Every structure is written in structure tokens, then in C-alpha cells.
Amino acid sequence: MRKMIIGIVSLLAVIVAAEPAAAATGGGWVPAPSSPWEVPAGARCDFPVRAEPVVDEVRTRVFERYPDGSTKREAYVGDLVLKVTNVASGASVEVDLSGSAMVKIAQGGTVVSDSVWAVVGPALFGFREGGGNRPRGIYVFDGLYTIAFDAASYKTVTMYHGTERELCAELSR
């Protein structure tokens, strides 16, 4: 486990160290805007949920490609705050999701299938019933962790140090 933590921290240090210099020259960082999204009742929570960016300064950069040109490793950095709303009751919460991630994608995969995210800081992930190693819900993970997606988008979270917060429970109050 110690080796894994050192590897994740080292990988993410590359992102942070490269960002200021790359930003000054353009360095391949491009905006990665988050779109508003909605899920119906029962998909993640017992009620319909809507999320929309309040602050969105996320950027992405491809660090490595496969011979066919598809992305093998890419990073995400920048400020992101989402307003997540229980559509049925109007209850909402703003969540800071300004973490940094390095994503390794298997050839033929995408960022949400056949990939592994190494993350430092907060990020939000939704889980459908039977769709991962967490119960159905919307989670904010914060700390040092990985999230692996298999070909069917089944999510496996491995938390090395940090916290998790389940938003459906908060929004149902």
C-alpha cells in the first residue's frame, strides 16, 4: 500500500509541477467544462437529482497516447464547484470538487470504462445499483484514492487516506 500511495503522490506531483510552467506557454492544457446533468428518481437517489457547475475552471492535458493516437494518460486540474439539487424538494448543496486526477485509460477504453483514476482532493462520483463497491448514491470522495472503472463502468474505489460523503442522504433531509 505504501508503494501505491508514493506512486499516486509522485504522479500527481508531476501534474502540479508541470501546470504553472505549462500554463505560461499554453502547454497543452485545455478547458474541460462540466455540463449540467440530471438523473431520474431511483437512478442514484430515491428522488431526481440535478447538478450544475457554479465554478468551472477545470483543465485537462493529455500526457501520453497509444500508437493509434487515442489517449493513454491524461490529467485533470482546476477549480470546480457543483450545485447538487433534490429536484423533488428543492434542497440543494454546493460541493467543492477541486481535486486533481491522473487518468490511465486502457487501449479502446474511455475515461469512464477501462480506466483508473488516481486522485488527490475532492471529486464526485455517482453509483447505480450494483454499479460499484459502494451502494447506490452520489459520493464526494476527498483525500488520496483511486477509482477503477471496468469495461462495464463498474466502479471500484480504493481509499488510502481521506473521507467520503454521500449526498443523497444529505439532500433527503
Rank of each mutant, 00 (worst) to 15 (best):
L82D: 04
N86C: 02
P31A: 11
Y145C: 05
E129Y: 10
A106H: 08
R165V: 10
R136L: 01
P135I: 08
Y154R: 13
T60A: 14
S172H: 10
V39A: 14
F149G: 03
P135L: 09
A32T: 10
K104M: 11
G130D: 07
L167H: 02
S35G: 13
V55G: 05
G121Q: 01
R128E: 15
L12Q: 01
K3R: 15
V119E: 03
R50S: 14
S153D: 10
L124S: 10
G126A: 10
V84G: 01
V49C: 00
E19M: 14
G90W: 02
A88V: 09
A41M: 09
A51M: 12
A23H: 13
I8L: 09
A101Q: 11
N133V: 09
R65Q: 11
V157S: 11
L167R: 02
E170T: 09
G137L: 01
S70H: 09
A23D: 15
S153P: 08
N86W: 00
F125K: 13
I105P: 03
V95C: 04
G27N: 07
A43Y: 12
D79I: 11
I147F: 01
F127M: 11
A18T: 15
T146K: 03
P20S: 05
E74C: 09
D79E: 13
S172M: 14
I105F: 05
A21T: 13
Y160C: 09
V30P: 07
V116S: 07
W37F: 14
T85E: 02
L11R: 15
Y160A: 11
V140I: 05
E19P: 09
G78N: 04
Y145N: 03
V84D: 01
P33M: 07
L171I: 07
A101K: 14
S35D: 15
G7I: 10
W117Q: 04
M159K: 10
I8Y: 06
A118P: 00
L12W: 00
E166A: 06
V9T: 15
M4K: 15
I105V: 13
D56V: 06
F141S: 10
V93I: 13
V16W: 12
S153R: 12
L167D: 00
K155Q: 12
S100F: 08
F63R: 03
K72W: 03
A32H: 10
E166Y: 07
T85F: 06
D114S: 14
V54T: 06
S115R: 01
A152H: 12
E94P: 09
E164S: 11
L167V: 00
R65A: 08
D150W: 04
A41E: 06
V120Y: 05
G42D: 07
K83Q: 12
V14N: 14
V93R: 11
L144A: 03
F125S: 11
I15D: 15
T146W: 00
A75C: 07
A43V: 14
G99R: 00
R165C: 08
E170K: 06
E94L: 12
A21I: 15
G130L: 01
T85L: 05
G137Q: 02
C168F: 01
L82R: 06
V16S: 12
V49Q: 00
P31Y: 07
D56N: 04
V157W: 10
A17H: 08
